[in-house]
């Protein structure tokens, strides 16, 4: 039996989430032994043609050519997993979605720039099999997701909030004790409640936990959705 193939794709992003794969210093060579890394431009010149068993997608869709490219990636991928806030929510560059068209304002020669008005998540363009949150993603969660897809099981990634992680770690609540605004109650867990650990309020980089929706990195009021299982009331 040949090893399953893994491909890594980049769209509009900072490279930090795919770097998280290279940052698995203790596990990287084991992963590279368990799968055939078929396409990972940041790490290798070698490109094995598809189809691929698992595609990992970083970044958001911001150009017409990327909107076409993600469809090609979907067609040649058995499973498609998005990693990070850009791919799952549009990322920090989705701030453009709330303002005026930036291109004619900011470019000396905007006609050279081929950019869409909005930055949108991958799931707005193609079917996504799993979305891993975070800006950046957490490497333990990344390893869990890759292992789960290779084993044909569901990833064990908790759907509760940062607040829950923070309480479990026994941290002093920055909101209750110091009056610091904190998005921990409504933010997807996974970082290990890092911001409260340094005495700072969570700024929501993992996006909303299930049961909450709020605009990605936006300024709108959070909205509680129907039927959500929010676990940190």
């Amino acid at each position: 039996m040949t090893a399953p193939t893994l491909a890594v794709w980049k769209f509009a992003s900072c490279d930090g989430c795919q770097l998280t794969l290279l940052n698995c210093e203790d596990e990287l060579l084991a992963i590279a032994g368990a799968v055939q890394i078929a396409s990972f431009t940041e790490a290798s010149r070698e490109v094995v043609p598809g189809p691929y068993d698992v595609s990992i997608v970083e970044g958001s869709i911001t150009t017409p050519s990327d909107a076409a490219r993600i469809r090609e990636v979907r067609e040649k991928s058995r499973f498609l997993i998005t990693i990070g806030a850009c791919a799952t929510a549009g990322g920090v560059q989705a701030l453009r979605n709330f303002g005026d068209d930036l291109a004619p304002v900011v470019y000396a020669s905007p006609q050279y720039i081929d950019s869409l008005r909005t930055s949108t998540p991958i799931a707005e363009h193609v079917r996504v099999d799993f979305e891993l949150r975070g800006c950046p993603i957490d490497k333990r969660q990344l390893i869990e997701v890759i292992a789960a897809f290779l084993a044909g099981r569901r990833p064990n990634v908790p759907a509760h909030s940062v607040c829950m992680e923070c309480k479990r770690a026994g941290r002093v609540c920055v909101m209750v004790a110091h009056g610091t605004p904190c998005l921990g109650p409504m933010t997807q867990a996974g970082c290990g409640a890092l911001c409260p650990s340094v005495g700072r309020g969570c700024y929501g980089c993992f996006g909303p936990a299930p049961g909450w929706t709020f605009l990605p990195f936006g300024t709108a009021e959070p909205v509680r959705t129907e039927g959500g299982a929010h676990d940190a009331r």
Binding site: P136, L194, R200
Partner: peptide, 17 residues
């Protein structure tokens, strides 16, 4: 910094902790 990609402990003026 709390993490290696996009550290959270840096602020204008210094560090949170």
């Amino acid at each position: 910094g709390g993490r290696s990609v996009h550290p959270v402990n840096v602020k204008v003026g210094g560090f949170y902790r």
